[in-house]
Design a protein around this nucleic acid. Structure first.
Lengths: 225, 225
DNA sequence: CGACAATTTGAAGCTTCTCAATTCATGTGG
DNA sequence: CCACATGAATTGAGAAGCTTCAAATTGTCG
């Protein structure tokens, strides 16, 4: 629990609160509380009552659907400046997903009533929130499209090409197991596909680092088998 | 293109606009235009620029992801009083999905700028919109959960039990092909699963009508194979 | 009644998963 | 600093589940 000044400084750097009138941002910041979450710790779990939303100050958070069998389906990742937990909050229903820290992270938590109050005052804020939710819905729809209409190798090719690239070099942002789940694959299948692409000379893999030798060929993989 | 009076009457019956201050609702209604869509006609298609949102006055609309192979993945259905197309509108990007009428339908279309103006005036409206989007996200997450973590028969059992029931009788709300796509199945697989459940005495099927003889047994199917 | 679409049924095949074992990293404590 | 322990990633073999294709049947609407 650090001081509130800190909270405002954190919010100032987020796209959603950064554009706000300063006085109003400060007002929201005063209601927010800072939250430290150690790696692997849960921010909330499915079934918890949703009391507010979270802003990532530092670190990374993973949202996933738990499953009795110990599997899980990874849905989304959130980094600094990003917002999560709102959908549960707006619904006023318990969370459907787990939120887990992928690294030691610092979050700001803002309670539901404070958000509602801020929305009343700030039409700009609700515009941002709506846009943000819409963007996330879009991402979910893309995921549904991928799982339902594309093959495993298509999904992988698409994922690799979308990662930020430095020259020909890319990286898996998280462990391969987690990326596999995000792509709707078993870790074994991901491993085999990477091996195939390597053998074909399209890429080479060293740990989480991937070098893309033939981006054009990869792009073709996206479309047809 | 019928008169605007009509539009207001239509909006008055929707959960989202019905609770609004009457004067404000009328103001929105005046900006909306009525739209007749014949069965099988598209309201919009993937790639179209998103100019506004749609309210269903009567009929039913299906949102789906098209696929080059002629397949499609059905995402959602919308009936009277429901709202669709907002996510594309808020994103200010072309639609990712097709919107097609399942029957002759009447819609109200409201342009983006008019919605934005209404949101400025009405914090209540933005609350509704946010809640609505959150609900839809939840539904998508449930779909993702179903496709990734559940078997075909589990998904079907879950679907059957969720349909509105009259005694032991349920109905497929749309053609089996469409329901199959919604469940992430091929029509053939759906047909076979229904046959299995019938043979096992859990249900009986006559066209779109389904009688559930053993709801408890179905409920078990939901959980384990 | 006749044509067209929707559904059912059968057979075959393929993609992906599961299980199990091995190798490879990662980090810890002596 | 190294040995060890723990978890991640790879690899192999086998199987399961679902899809695809094709044909027959049923249903529907003009």
């Amino acid at each position: 629990m650090t001081c509130k000044l800190n909270v405002d400084a954190l919010l100032a750097h987020t796209p959603i609160f950064g554009d706000l009138n300063v006085a109003r941002r400060v007002r929201i910041a005063q209601t927010g509380r800072e939250l430290q979450v150690a790696k692997h710790r849960f921010v909330f779990r499915r079934g918890d009552t949703a009391g507010g939303l979270y802003v990532v100050a530092s670190g990374h958070i993973k949202l996933s659907i738990p499953s009795p069998g110990g599997n899980e389906k990874v849905l989304e990742f959130f980094g600094p400046g990003q917002l999560f937990g709102e959908s549960g909050m707006f619904l006023e229903r318990p969370y459907m997903v787990d939120a887990q820290a992928l690294e030691d992270s610092v979050l700001v938590c803002i309670a539901r009533d404070d958000i509602y109050a801020a929305l009343e005052r700030d039409p700009v804020l609700s515009r941002y929130m709506l846009m943000n939710l819409a963007r996330r819905m879009d991402a979910l729809v893309e995921d549904i499209e991928a799982v339902n209409l594309q093959s495993a190798s298509q999904r992988l090719a698409c994922f690799l090409l979308r990662q930020p690239r430095d020259g020909a070099c890319t990286r898996f942002p998280y462990s391969k197991g987690i990326v596999a789940s995000k792509l709707g694959l078993s870790p074994e299948t991901l491993s085999r596909l990477l091996h195939q692409l390597s053998s074909a000379g399209l890429i080479s893999v060293h740990g989480r680092m991937v070098t893309i030798h033939q981006p054009e060929a990869l792009r073709l993989q996206q479309v047809a088998s």
